[in-house]
Amino acid sequence: MGGNPDQFVRFLNVQKSYDGETLVVKNFNVDIAAGEFLTMLGPSGSGKTTCLMMLAGFEAATHGDIILDGQSINNVAPHKRDIGMVFQNYALFPHMTVAENLAFPLKVRKMSKSEIDRKVKRALEMVQLGHFGSRRPAQLSGGQQQRVAVARALVFEPKLVLMDEPLGALDKNLREEMQYEIKHIHEDLGVTMVYVTHDQSEALTMSDRIAVFEDGIVQQLATPDQLYEKPENAFVAGFIGENNRLHGQLKSVEGDTCSVALEGSDGIVKALKVNVDGVGGRTTLSIRPERVVLDPDSDQYPNRCQARVEELIYLGDHIRARMTVSGNSNFITKVPNTQRHTPLKRGEVVNIGWATEDCRALDA
């Protein structure tokens, strides 16, 4: 490697506009380490796929620089970037066998037949398709085709592998199976991977770090547990996992905590001060459903209020209870399915609570 391994891929002040006026990517800056699995996560139109396409060379940056292994690649053709690519629609050649599909990028690189045969055999075994080399793509299931697409991206041992919504066409069970398979391949090979998805659970399952996109801007770049436990703004809190929101007005600040008067009630809530304006400003409180407890102990849970049970859904290991809290009728709690808990009843009013450290005061 020619560059700093902690800065194997670099986006430096990268912008992209298709019409010369509207920026779909705004001042994108990120360093990706060699061997890292970084996911670009966000809703449709947030700029994540555009960033991947600029890295692949299929789109040109309007402004800024993209560095790969210490070298600027802004003016390097896609086929000369030594990057493997996996698309959502697999993009396999239908007239070629599986082995011929995998051999294609090796032939382009003018490798010997013996070397091609060895690399194709190894790649097929890596994705557990060792006996499928003679089949055509049409003779394979969706999951098998996706495995072939992954193998083709890895067969020439590229510096970097890019994946654009690669599991989007698969059913839920197969999708989850492939998530672990790609994660294990990444761990075994140590190759650098940049992955694009709009699926939060997929990103949390597979990634070393996740860049959460919205409106062309990275809202937060962090590890999966940091994104879930410590979201920096209301968008990230709502986009990553299930999240309860309560709106209120900032009444006072005491070091790292603050007091918030809830809208729709006379309650005061203590929260971690994360991303708020001054006293008197509006804020959004973020509380994860699993952090809410029934019949809370007053010493351990200073934030307590009444909630009306609107709906109960049995989910095996827990009961998902939708409640009305402070005017919010979509406040979710997850009640563990144990004998210690009294069964809830629809329409009853119960006491709930949560710890100060589990409640984050974010932007309004």
Score class of each variant (00 low, 15 high):
residue 132 F to C: 11
residue 155 V to S: 07
residue 30 V to P: 07
residue 98 V to T: 11
residue 57 G to A: 14
residue 306 Q to I: 01
residue 98 V to N: 11
residue 52 L to M: 11
residue 259 S to T: 09
residue 281 G to H: 09
residue 240 I to S: 10
residue 12 L to D: 10
residue 101 N to P: 06
residue 280 G to F: 02
residue 96 M to Y: 01
residue 187 E to L: 11
residue 152 R to A: 00
residue 137 P to N: 06
residue 160 L to S: 01
residue 145 Q to I: 08
residue 209 R to Y: 14
residue 299 D to R: 14
residue 314 Y to M: 07
residue 344 L to T: 07
residue 232 E to D: 04
residue 37 F to A: 05
residue 106 L to T: 09
residue 111 M to W: 11
residue 50 T to L: 08
residue 92 L to M: 02
residue 60 A to Y: 08
residue 245 R to F: 15
residue 282 R to N: 15
residue 79 H to V: 08
residue 259 S to G: 09
residue 352 I to P: 01
residue 355 A to F: 00
residue 232 E to T: 15
residue 41 L to M: 03
residue 191 V to C: 06
residue 98 V to Q: 12
residue 17 S to A: 11
residue 350 V to G: 11
residue 59 E to P: 04
residue 264 G to P: 10
residue 1 M to D: 10
residue 281 G to Y: 07
residue 242 E to M: 08
residue 36 E to Q: 15
residue 246 L to K: 08
residue 244 N to Q: 06
residue 44 S to R: 09
residue 289 P to D: 12
residue 180 Y to G: 02
residue 41 L to Q: 07
residue 283 T to K: 09
residue 129 L to H: 05
residue 48 K to C: 00
residue 203 A to R: 05
residue 329 S to V: 00
residue 143 G to Y: 15
residue 66 I to A: 10
residue 215 D to A: 15
residue 102 L to Q: 04
residue 58 F to T: 09
residue 245 R to K: 13
residue 342 T to C: 02
residue 308 R to I: 06
residue 59 E to S: 10
residue 111 M to C: 06
residue 256 D to V: 14
residue 212 V to H: 13
residue 315 L to K: 03
residue 130 G to K: 15
residue 136 R to L: 12
